[in-house]
Design a binder for these strands. Structure first.
Length: 516
RNA sequence: CGCGGGGUAGAGCAGUCUGGUAGCUCGUCGGGCUCAUAACCCGAAGGUCAGGAGUUCAAAUCUCCUCCCCGCCA
């Protein structure tokens, strides 16, 4: 079955921020991991482009909404390309097929009797695209999040009868594993337990949206049409816009990865909409944490926003990916600390991993004719580094499966540390000087090279670039070429070929210089 | 108000479910090595586990109370 995973469809109100990049990077690692295991994967990302907020932003900068969306979503797409994100789809909710999918979906919900007319009255925050109940008594109320004036609305809208799904959503939400990490489940359960209320799914006289069939002047509320982008995205490029066809392409999604702020939409509203339309809810909704910078919230007003495009430019893909995925527990909030970022990248990638490869290939070349040394029979199987590699492999596989990138990264790193330690214990540089030490040195270098090869492979989902550079140093064909067999096949101890020529060593990871 | 998450060495965290010498990474300090990217390896210092009370032979871990941070309540 296809492993479908999604990032949020990012709202094109502004250029991409680090949070979006973080989510996307994490999904990319997961998508790569599943592909490496041989699973068919559908990795979906894209942009959400409707709504009043977009319309106003476009107006403010004097362009049409469509032109604005084209421009911003291109920024996203280009950025993901520069990060070599491996998404299979980039869906935009202004895609013509999306409109048809939304209409078909809506017809189903309507046919289930889940659409009713109602009067929507209250204070509205355009930035949130939400009504604010807590503002009811106040005069001149502000949005507590955006600190901008709320607008009074009183209009006839179409409502989705969410209340009918109370029992089903309660059951779904309490299902172990549906909401991840588990620590966020309670929050949603409590919300549901308060009683689900119908919510409006249309807006009146809002031109920048998808028209509601059969209701002139109504367009769909952004949150109704946006999530359906996940379904539209299932379609292959040449497919007709057909809902039944779409869901055969990889539904239900295995996981929606989102920021914790939009957990409710994904874990409550969205599954109910799907049930109403006779579709399965996603298997998991993973709400990850937010990033702060040096202990402070990032925000325009503080002027401390980290731009993912700049980070990429200054430090490169591997460094940023490593820091975000290795040092921050996926799910928890995390703090981006410049000093630690530099320390970790230099220590882990340049020193521990890069230098391990460098010193080992260099010795092998010098003493064994520029090639992988021969290993004596019987030396390999019960070797401590074989055990270390097996442990690392298990921890990486198990960790990645749970989106525990930190565990996976640390496991790969531990193998490199073990290999470095083994080298220092054996000190082949001393032993080679003793006449009878040559066979032992050959064995030792072989197992360390083999351990290094495992490190490279284990890093593949997290740091695809570094992995390929390491494999090249080890005389291996590119992993992406598939020439040496599948990833799992290569992750067996002893696959490294004796006598394989080793190229001139070159640092696979440069140290980052402080002070930028 | 209610609910959820959290408060453990200079920093970031694990350990809490299933009580029993407080552990990891980074930083700091000392030693070793010289194959290697001033890289690698080993060791040390550094903690009243937010505070208080209780249960227990024994509490970071269980119970109760207090304080502080973050989040949810359409």
């Amino acid at each position: 079955m296809t492993y479908t995973l999604t990032t949020p469809l990012y709202y094109v109100n502004d250029k991409p921020h680090l949070g979006s990049a973080y989510t996307t990077l994490a999904c990319d690692a997961q998508a790569r991991f599943q592909r490496l295991k041989g699973e068919p994967v559908l990795f979906i990302t894209g942009c959400d482009e409707h709504g009043l907020k977009i319309q106003r932003t476009a107006e403010a900068s004097g362009v049409s909404p469509q032109a604005h969306c084209d421009q911003v979503s291109e920024t996203y797409e280009k950025l993901w390309q520069r990060w070599t994100i491996s998404n299979d789809r980039f869906i935009r909710t202004t895609d013509p097929r999306h409109r048809q999918i939304v209409e078909q979906f809506y017809r189903r919900v309507e046919a289930s009797g889940d659409v009713v007319e109602g009067r929507q009255q209250g204070w509205y925050c355009v930035a949130c695209e939400e009504f604010k109940d807590d503002a009811l008594g106040a005069e001149d109320p502000e949005c507590s999040i955006h600190r901008r004036p709320l607008e009074w609305r009183d209009e006839l809208n179409l409502f989705f009868r969410l209340s009918r799904y109370q029992a089903q959503i309660e059951a779904l939400v309490s299902q172990p594993g549906f909401i991840a990490p588990a620590s966020r489940r309670r929050e949603v359960e409590n919300f549901v337990a308060q009683g689900l209320r119908d919510f409006s799914i249309s807006r009146l006289h809002l031109p920048w949206g998808i028209p509601v069939p059969g209701h002139a002047d109504h367009t769909f509320y952004v949150w109704f049409d946006a999530l359906l982008g996940y379904i539209t995205a299932l379609l292959e490029p040449g497919d007709p816009a057909d809902l039944d066809l779409a869901i055969t392409r990889g539904w239900p999604a295995h996981v929606h990865v989102i920021g914790k702020d939009i957990l409710r939409f994904h874990a409550v509203y969205w599954p109910a909409m799907l049930l109403s339309a006779g579709l399965e809810p996603p298997q998991q909704v993973f709400g990850h944490g937010f990033l702060t910078r040096e202990g402070q919230k990032m925000g325009k007003s503080l002027g401390n926003v980290l731009d993912p495009a700049e980070l990429l430019e200054h430090y490169g893909r591997d460094a940023v990916r490593w820091y975000l995925l290795r040092d921050i527990t996926f799910g928890d909030d995390g703090d981006f600390q410049q000093q630690r970022f530099l320390d970790l990248v230099n220590n882990d990638l340049a020193n521990t991993i890069g230098n391990l490869l460098n010193r080992t290939t260099s010795m092998a070349r010098r003493w064994f004719d520029n090639a992988v040394p021969p290993v004596s029979a019987g030396f390999m199987a019960d070797h401590p580094l074989a055990a270390a590699a097996a442990t690392a492999r298990e921890l990486v596989l198990a960790g990645m499966e749970r989106l525990d990138f930190r565990q996976a990264a640390e496991a790969a790193l531990q193998l490199a540390i073990a290999a470095n330690g083994y080298l220092n214990e054996q000190a082949p540089w001393s032993r080679i000087k003793q006449g009878d030490g040559r066979l032992q040195v050959a064995d030792d270098l072989y197992v360390v090279l083999e351990a290094s090869r495992h490190v490279a492979l284990l890093l593949a989902p997290l740091l695809p670039d570094l992995c390929e550079r390491m494999l090249k140093q080890l005389g291996q064909p590119p992993l992406s070429s598939g020439a040496a067999g599948t990833w799992l096949e290569q992750l067996r101890w002893g696959v490294l070929e004796e006598g394989l020529p080793l190229p001139q060593p070159e640092p696979v990871m440069a140290r980052l210089e402080p002070g930028e």
